[in-house]
Design a binder for these strands. Structure first.
Length: 591
RNA sequence: GCCCCCGUAGCUCAGAGGACAGAGCAGGAGCCUUCUAAGCUCUUGGCCGGAGGUUCGAAUCCUCCCGGGGGUACCA
């Protein structure tokens, strides 16, 4: 039996008391108290249980409480209100629990007893487009979830799933053709060799794509041309494939650089085109099986089952021109992920606006038998990042803000803040730059991840770069303060020692906060909600900062108390560093 | 029209059916001869969009309404 968390142990304890009364031990679930001035923990089960047996809740709570009263781990057991059982644990036990975390490389967080293969599909860059603010959320939420599931013992596969095979390719190619029809790529019978150098730079593509997208709106004939070019690319026309490969290379270069600045790495670098070979056989098979059908010249799968509450249009697999869509590649990608990668759980970290698409896609995957029932497919949806005006975040000129510009903005703000701080003055220039980068990225990521992912949120550079209060840098600052103490303690050869029972509110509360780590991680994973990690990291850092203020470790006269506090500081740093790592945030040595 | 998401303090946002609804910022009052003040302490501020319902108990679940956003067959 592995380590149990404090809350699970308490729940077992109270559950046994319920069982002794002939009731379901599940009623014994213990949670952190909502009324800290009354108790540390509470159990609400007596009210529900009382209903089952038809007894007065307070009376039942009293019976359970009297069975718990003498337990050596508990310092106080009270009944309050309609039948709350309030619990306060003994300081001795709290110290023992904290010591257990100190001795555990996993800080008391158990690894999953049923490890799965979890694929996280996030980032979603498109060929021909540099990443912009819209990619920020997908990237950092997905990255955080990937890190969390990995820490919890799952096999995680990170895949950005490039958009590289759809109509956007035809649109861009058609626009390049319009401007430079003489290029070899467009000569019908020519099969190469084609020029080594791409005919377009990333800047060109940046300019071309929006123009092409707009032209498709106003010029139907031209749009048709783009569709046709898409189909011909998918069918392997040499000139288009050559051009496509060059555009892809140019785009990927900048995207990898953006991901690198955010400290995000992937295990696979797959895109839609990587399942190109599967699409045609898949569509044919589904037609043969009668799962797919022809309708209005296209091949579709109807996804409305009898009894389905949500009506949805069919999923289109093949256009009337014979082209494939992202629906097709998404379905083929599910097949690949299930058959070749053995995925148990796939998390699609994609904008909430695509929820209909994923509902259609997942239903289609079920009816087609591509995803067996035991494979879980989930759309991890998130809201839009808006500007101060509540509308999608734009530059002053009204353009889309590129991801690298956004990172520049926040790093510049961090540099400015650093320049104001007298303590940073003596640092070498290189270190100051590194700190500005780490602080900037921390502010950006934490500012995003602290929000519930489902809601839209407002990005306000001034607020994000104040670096005070509930921000990424606040957490880094807390951790850095511990490092500073550690350096000084090492300089004076001060040892760490066994955790002693707390002597005041500040160290007791820090220990209590640390004991919540396992439940927080479990909940964050279950809800796929990094904001629970972020919120807890802030609460823990606050508890540390209070402790820092009230308990002066280096001045402590009692050597064993000092050694205990040093251990507590070490543990806090490990917990903070771990949490920040799960949020994708680095901790500087000093700042 | 239909479907999905969101309306919580001046602002930005949390909130696991439970006890008087929380945080950060902003506003007010304090704390640097002591481990980094990017910090700490205290404080002002809310009929949780509205109306019903379920429940011992609802910001949380259900229904309707109002307001905002998004999506709705060959874009991603």
């Amino acid at each position: 039996m592995g380590l149990m968390s404090l809350l699970s142990e308490l729940s077992v304890l109270v559950g046994e008391a319920f069982a002794a009364e002939g009731l379901d031990p599940a009623h014994g679930e213990v949670v952190v108290s909502q009324r800290p001035e009354l108790a540390q923990f509470q159990c609400n089960g007596a009210m529900a249980a009382a209903r089952v047996v038809g007894a007065p809740p307070r009376e039942l709570a009293g019976k359970v409480a009297s069975r718990l009263g003498a337990h050596p781990h508990l310092a106080a057991v009270d009944i309050a209100g309609p039948g709350f059982i309030n619990l306060t644990i003994s300081d001795d036990w709290l110290a023992a629990v904290t010591q257990r975390a100190v001795d555990d490389p996993r800080l008391g967080v158990p690894a999953s007893s049923e490890p799965s293969t979890v694929l996280v599909d996030y980032g979603g860059p498109n060929v021909a487009k540099a990443m912009h603010v819209g990619h920020l959320r997908a990237t950092i939420i997905g990255d955080s979830l990937a890190r969390l599931f990995s820490f919890l013992g799952h096999k995680v596969i990170r895949d950005p799933h490039f958009g590289d095979w759809g109509l956007q390719m035809g649109l861009v190619m058609a626009e390049i053709e319009r401007r430079r029809p003489e290029l070899a790529y467009f000569v019908p019978e020519f099969t190469g060799p084609f020029p080594e150098e791409p005919p377009v730079t990333l800047e060109d593509l940046q300019e071309i794509y929006p123009v092409a997208a707009a032209r498709a709106e106003t010029d139907p004939a031209w749009a048709e041309r783009a569709r046709l070019m898409t189909v011909e690319l998918q069918q392997g026309r040499p000139g288009y494939v050559a051009l496509w490969q060059q555009m892809k290379r140019v785009s990927e270069e900048s995207q990898r650089a953006d991901f690198a600045r955010l400290g995000v790495e992937f295990d696979l670098w797959y895109g839609e085109s990587d399942v190109a070979d599967r699409m045609e056989p898949l569509v044919r098979r589904l037609l043969e099986q009668g799962v797919a059908e022809e309708s209005r010249g296209a091949v579709i799968i109807r996804v409305d089952q009898p009894g389905e509450k949500r009506e949805l249009p069919p999923l289109i697999l093949e256009t009337s021109l014979g082209g494939y869509l992202y629906s097709t590649s998404d379905l083929a990608t599910i097949e690949m992920r299930v058959d070749d990668l053995g995925v148990d759980l796939a998390l699609y970290v994609v904008d909430a606006r695509q929820s209909d698409h994923f509902e259609q896609l997942f239903r289609a995957a079920r009816v087609a038998g591509i995803a067996p029932p035991e494979v879980r497919l989930e759309h991890i949806k998130f809201g839009t990042m808006n500007g101060k005006d509540g509308k999608p975040f734009k530059t002053r000129a009204g353009g889309v803000v590129s991801l690298s510009d956004l990172i520049d903005l926040i790093e510049t703000a961090a540099s400015a803040r650093l320049a104001e701080a007298e303590i940073a003055e003596g640092y070498p220039e290189a270190e100051r730059k590194a700190i500005a980068r780490q602080v900037g990225v921390a502010a950006l990521k934490f500012g995003d991840l602290i929000n519930n992912r489902a809601s839209d949120y407002i990005f306000d550079l001034d607020r994000f770069s104040s670096f005070e209060g509930k921000t990424g840098p606040y957490l880094q600052y807390g951790a850095v303060r511990i490092r500073s103490i550690q350096r000084r303690a090492a300089g004076r050869d001060l040892p760490t020692g066994p955790i002693l029972p707390p002597v005041q509110a500040a160290d007791r509360e820090l220990m209590l906060e640390l004991a919540r780590l396992p439940e927080i991680m479990g909940r964050a994973a279950e809800l796929r909600a990094p904001n629970h990690l972020a919120e807890y990291a802030f609460v823990l850092a606050s508890a540390w900062n209070r402790f820092y203020d009230h308990c002066h470790i280096l001045d402590e006269a009692d050597p064993s108390r000092q050694a205990s506090w040093l251990s507590l500081a070490h543990l806090t740093l490990r917990a903070l560093t771990l949490l920040l790592d799960l949020l994708g945030i680095e901790v500087p040595e000093r700042m």
